[in-house]
């Protein structure tokens, strides 16, 4: 079993339901291959969300609307959302295509599971590439994103993401597992105000020490 397969199996332990579903699917595959195929097809659907050709053609059409480039960015956010009517993603593990996404495994777990996930990645010999966040203002939540990568194998990026509430964003620190997370989490706190519980030294890192704002929040303006 390759490192990626082993890691996948280890990460799958975070999601007992999906593990069960996959085991069942496998068992079914022995009996009826067709049934298993349908089961697997239901999963990658979420990955194949980019339809670039259509999108580009569409953009080419309104190329003339170029002068409107300078519009403030906040207004169009609401406009676009009605186009992408996708059900919110369920927690679980996805196999993604490295060529289109840059990752091979995409894990969406509960905020309480990120330390456990970090331990699994540490045991598998991965290193922490970065920690960051995305502020989803409209959905009123924040996404914390961990990127892991491996030195020894090709194309091994694993992304772990978890959502926290926007009012009181807080999540456990993984700096006890990966010391590199120390600075990444400090930066994320600096920019987004996400509290990393248990962080040894959560102070400003890139912004001035007396700053009282978190600039990457979507509702921040100076």
């Amino acid at each position: 079993m390759s490192i990626i397969e082993e890691t996948r199996a280890a990460l799958l332990t975070l999601f007992p339901e999906q593990t069960k579903a996959e085991e069942e699917a496998e068992a079914l595959a022995v009996q009826a291959a067709a049934q298993a195929e349908a089961d697997a097809a239901a999963e990658p659907e979420l990955v194949a969300e980019s339809a670039p050709e259509e999108e580009i053609a569409e953009v080419a059409a309104d190329e003339k609307a170029e002068d409107t480039t300078e519009k403030p960015k906040k207004k169009p956010v609401a406009k676009k959302k009605e186009k992408v009517e996708e059900p919110p993603r369920e927690p679980g593990l996805l196999d993604t295509d490295h060529a289109t996404r840059g990752t091979v495994i995409d894990v969406y777990c509960d905020a309480s599971q990120v330390v456990e996930a970090a331990k699994i990645m540490d045991e598998a010999g991965f290193f922490l590439e970065s920690v960051t966040a995305v502020d989803w203002l409209k959905e009123e939540k924040m996404e914390v994103v961990y990127d892991y990568n491996h030195f020894a194998i090709e194309q091994s990026r694993v992304v772990v993401r978890a959502f926290v509430s926007r009012e009181e964003p807080a999540i456990d620190t993984v700096s006890g597992v990966f010391p590199s997370a120390d600075w990444h989490e400090r930066e994320t706190w600096d920019f987004f105000g996400i509290d990393f519980k248990g962080h040894p030294n959560q102070i400003r890192i890139l912004l001035p020490e007396d700053a009282d704002f978190h600039p990457l929040l979507k509702d921040f303006s100076c």
Binding site: E49, P52, V59, V84, T100, R101, G102, D147
Partner: peptide
């Protein structure tokens, strides 16, 4: 040939 204003589809990706 790339449109002057790009509007990639929703989603995230990583490149290094």
């Amino acid at each position: 040939k790339v449109p002057k204003i790009l509007k990639p589809a929703a989603g995230d990706c990583y490149a290094s």
